[in-house]
Structures are given as C-alpha cells and as structure tokens.
Design a protein around this nucleic acid. Structure first.
Lengths: 327, 327
DNA sequence: AGAAGTATTGAAAACGTTTTCAGGTAAAAT
DNA sequence: ATTTTACCTGAAAACGTTTTCAATACTTCT
C-alpha cells in the first residue's frame, strides 16, 4: 500500500498532526521539522490530495473551460493561464468544450463537483445565457466572450472597436464594397459584426454581412459562392482565423488574386499569417495578458469576494500586411 | 453551506447509503430511486469528488502530460485523448510542461498526489530517462516519445521509417545534397535524425545534419546562415513544424525560391501546410488514432495490470506537395 | 522564585462520501 | 406452513488528511 501521513509520523517519531504542520506550514520546532522532512524523503511520501481537499475545503485549483482548443487563440490563452496559475501556486483543471453547449454544461457541473477555488470560462453563446441561472460557490471569470453587462468579472478585447479599425483601414485604402463574414455561434462574432455594421454606416457604405457556424467546409463553400458571384465584394473581413484560412482557399479555388481581385483582413495573428503570400492583415489580440489578467482576477475575487465587479477591456493591435493594400 | 448526501437522504426519507447506491449504481428499489432522484434534483446536489475519491480510492481520472501545447501536434493529441476519455466516462487532468524537465517532474509528482487512475505522457528526453527511477501505483503510457525498449506501454509513430521515406522521395526527385535539421531536445528528433542518416548512407549520400533546440529565433538564424553559405543543400528535411516555418522564413530572407533553389520537406500536416505557396511536403501523423489508442491502452492496463507490455507503432503518411518537386 | 505568557505538541474530531455487515422483507421452493 | 433464496435497506466504520483543543514545555517578566 502507499505510504500515508501516519507512516511518516511513526518513522519520524512524532504525531500525524506534526507532520501535517511541517508540510502545511504550521509552527513547529526545528528539530521536529528536520525529523519529519527526513522521514518524508526516506519514504517518498506524497500527500493524498483528495483527503487534503476534503478536510481543508481548499483546493488551490483553478478551473479553465475554453470553447475550442484547436483555435490557436485558445491554446495561447490556456498557456498563459497555466503559466500564471503556476506562478501563483495554483493548479489548473482544464476542459475543452469544442463549442458544444452540452459538453460545456457537463464541465460546469464537473467544476462544481471538483470544488475548484475559481473558474475561468470562455463560454458558447448558449452557455453565456444559461450561466445566469447557475449559482456557484466559487468566483467565475469570463474571458474573451462576454456581453456588455455581466454579473461576473470579465476580461475581453474590444471587438467592436477593433473591427471598426479594420473597416476604416480598408476604406482608407480605397475599398468601398467591403463584405464581412462572422461566426454565428460566438458572442465575439456578434460583436465584431456589430462593429463592422456601425463602421460601414458611419462611412456611408452599405454592409454586406454573412454569418456562419465556424466550420471549414461550410465556410469555404459559402465563400467560393460569394467570390464567384457577379456582385462579389472588393474586400472582405473574416471574424476568425478559420474563416481567414477558408477565404484563402476560396480565393485560390476561384482564381482570385489577393489583394488585386479581393482584399482580406481578419482576426488573430497566427504563425502563418505572415508566412503566406501576401501576408494577412489582422487584429492581434493580447492573449498572454488576457490569460494573466484572468488568473489575477480570479485570485483577487477569492481574496475579496465582495469587491465591486471588474471589467477589463483590452484593445487589439491592427497589424497591416499586404493582403489589404490596394495595388 | 453546500448540500451534502445527508441532506438529500433526509429529504428523500432514506439513508445516506441508499442515496449513494442510487448515484453510484447499486441495487435499489424503483421507489427509493425515484424519491432520491427527486430530492437530488430539488436540492441541486453535486457530489463532493474529494470525498468520493478518498473513500472509494477510484478517481476515474486520466492524467495527460504533454511537452508543448503550442505545437499543434500536441493540441491534436490532447483533443483526441480528451474525446476518447470522455467517451469512456473518465476525466482528464491536463498538464503542459513546455519542454521544461523541472515542470515535468513537478507535474509527475502532482499526478501521484492526485492519485490518477492512469497517466499518459509525452516526456522530454531527460524526463524519459528519469522515468525509469520513478515508481507509480497507476499505469503509465508513453505517447509519441519513447525509445525502442521501455518498461511502459507505448504508442508512437514509426519516425525512423517515415524519415527514410522523405529522404527516398527527395532522392527520387533527383536531389542529392539533402540536409536535415532535427530537434535536439526530443527523442523523436533523435529518431528522425537516425532514420535520415541511415537512408542517406544506404543511398550512398553524405548526410548533413544539424541539431537545434526547438526555438523559432535560433532555428531561423541557423537556417539563414546555412541557406546563404556556399555549400548550401539542394533540399532540406525539417523534423518539426516550427522548424519548417523557420525554413520558409529563412528562404524568404535569403531570397531562395522553393523548390527552385531549395526543396523543403517536414513533419506534421498543419492547416497552413497546404496554404502557403508552394504547398509543403510533410509526414502526416495519425494523431487522432494515437490519442485514442493511448486512452484505450491506459484503460486496458487498469483492467488487467499484469498483461504483457504493449507497443503500438503506427506509420505516418507521406503527403507530397510542390515544395519537394524538382522543377 | 513564582507568575504569566508563548510556543510547541499529541489526541481526537471532523470532512462527505462509499462500503461492509447484518437484519429485514418478499418471493420462490419445499 | 415452513424453509430457502434473493433482494433491499440502514447503521456504522472507514478513507487520509487538517484542525481544534487542551496539555505540556519553555521564556520572559515581575
């Protein structure tokens, strides 16, 4: 059988309570500490987390639920969260919903059962709605995806403004017929769509909007049809990197050259954004900072549960490359 | 306070034991089951996992430790493992070491403390060595990274053969001076290097090997130097997708056209492999299957601890694109 | 030297489940 | 009608820690 705190205590010649104090940071004499540490080392004792958590009711674990791990944006978020949590001496319980509300709900229950100390979530649109009905006995922080008014702490990018920037940039290049393709399933897609429409109106241009679920095949088909129609746009904004990829494929399939025949601008600066030819103009999101701030928000909320709600809105950076430069 | 099994029992008018049986799948009468389920629903009861695990000594949790989440290969592995575990009714405790042996060791301890039911690891080279010294009281499965002889179950791709395939393909295109850049920190890098050297020798060609840590800046600098040296190779094999990216950047920086001035072939079929121009010839790894099989190996080992060691070697698929076609 | 604190310690309770064990009831077999 | 069998149930122990509480040993103060 595996070695428990009692075995260590016996070897060290002290009580289990003293062993616990040495490991948990209570006050003990140097002599006892030394004996205990020696016994721990010699036995290779590892505390049983289940027992510790049960008794102390503290888990030192942060839950993280993201919507789509395959999206490099979320892998970056995950990395940043883990790294920040690690520094704060907390563990991360990670879950990926794959944009499936059913799995999302299951994982939310999981987190309750695990009694995590805090939870960071990038919810699906449906999940965001249903979150209002849940009650958690730990703090919850929304990351990336949140509406204007939430009853949780929130860390987001300013999607509205960022999209407007893209529109204005394209317009300044002389493009008039600017289309937009937005994710139908995420709140960020919606916000970007609204920013786009508002910017178009304020420039006196007519918006041309399409909304789609974020799947590669659907998007590429739709874009190919769009690109080969007689009234195709001169430029198009893609609300996520999957769509951007589909747009490149569609342009290739329909024989359109970028930016000569059609200009492209999207979201998320990925490794390949500058690798393809021409490089893609994108909004670069402050991912590392978002992850770091989310962890810090959770920890602050754990420490002071009654502090006023925080809403951190970070701005994106518009990285201009050749895909949006009028020849 | 949060509601416990006793509260549910009281409301349902039964004993805590019966509640446990209803939830855990013991034998109970329909009447009791109904009452309990009603009480569970009305109270919103969620079992305390810590207590359950402590008492039952079963965690229904699989640990997963990968070396580098940013590498899309590992995000795909992670997804596959999670999805398979989910179907088997198990949770996944995920950790990312970022190729840091120190963190890796911490996470291994961590898994012991969590008393996971089984563990899947893609170890660093150093970690792979030190694993021999550990003793775990749960099964451990190595994924992607393992030597020929291991005392654990193993799921890997045949890196040796796959690399030979690449060499032979390049040679068949008429390339003679074929170089290779391999990751210095992972066992897969080493295996691919050996496959490359062996293939070169058997073709009567002289290997030109470089080994580097997998960091973008270092790799790009080295490659630029290589590409602009008088004795630069006609073709080059890159042992991971980060190197492949660096090679594209280096080719661009030094003004070399692909494949006219230099041919390129690498590992891992990523979204952008076919998006760049020309498309990149790669070995596509059977990631989904690797993840699925790893979970299945863990579960089998849990069920029959004394079964003989399993070593599953999957073959990669050589996807030929224009980057390796002699003009 | 005695009193009054201040660390340090061990015994035992507690955390919320599951599991064992023995008892009870109802159906089936004699 | 009695025994056997099968099934269901509740009381209580157990899981491995932390924490409370009271007791002991050591300082410091008067």
């Amino acid at each position: 059988m595996s070695v428990g705190i009692k075995d260590v205590a016996k070897i060290a010649g002290v009580s289990p309570a003293s062993v616990s104090r040495v490991l948990g940071g209570g006050s003990v004499s140097d002599k006892v500490r030394e004996q205990v540490l020696k016994a721990v080392k010699s036995t290779g004792y590892r505390p049983n987390m289940a027992a510790r958590r049960l008794r102390s009711n503290r888990t030192a674990t942060i839950g993280l639920i993201v919507a789509d791990l395959v999206n490099p944006f979320f892998t970056a978020i995950t990395q940043a969260v883990e790294s920040a949590a690690y520094k704060a001496g907390m563990r991360v319980m990670f879950c990926n919903t794959g944009e499936d509300p059913e799995r999302e709900e299951m994982y939310l229950k999981f987190m309750q059962e695990e009694r995590v100390s805090g939870l960071i979530v990038a919810p699906t649109t449906q999940g965001l709605k249903s979150l209002r009905k849940w009650s958690f006995d730990f703090p919850l922080v929304l990351i990336d995806r949140a509406r204007d008014k939430e009853k949780f702490d929130v860390i987001v990018m300013d999607n509205h403004t960022a999209t407007k920037e893209l529109v204005i940039h394209l317009h300044s290049q002389g493009y008039q017929r600017i289309g937009g393709l937005f994710g139908a399933t995420s709140i960020t897609g919606e916000q970007r769509k609204n920013g786009y429409i508002e910017a178009m109106h304020s420039l006196g241009l007519k918006p041309e909007v399409k909304s789609l679920p974020s799947t590669a095949i659907v998007a590429q088909n739709e874009l190919e049809a769009w690109f080969s129609s007689p009234d195709r746009p001169e430029a198009v904004i893609l609300s996520n990197s999957l769509f951007t990829r589909s747009a490149l494929m569609a342009a290739r399939a329909t024989g359109l050259r970028i930016p000569h025949d059609i200009a492209i601008a999207g979201f998320d600066d990925e490794p390949w954004s500058s690798l393809v030819d021409p490089g893609i103009t994108v909004i670069r999101q402050p991912v590392e900072m978002m992850g770091k701030e989310a962890v810090s928000a959770v920890i602050q909320r754990i420490e002071t549960p009654d502090a006023p709600l925080r809403r951190l809105v970070l701005s994106g950076e518009c990285v201009i490359r050749d895909s949006s430069q009028k020849p």
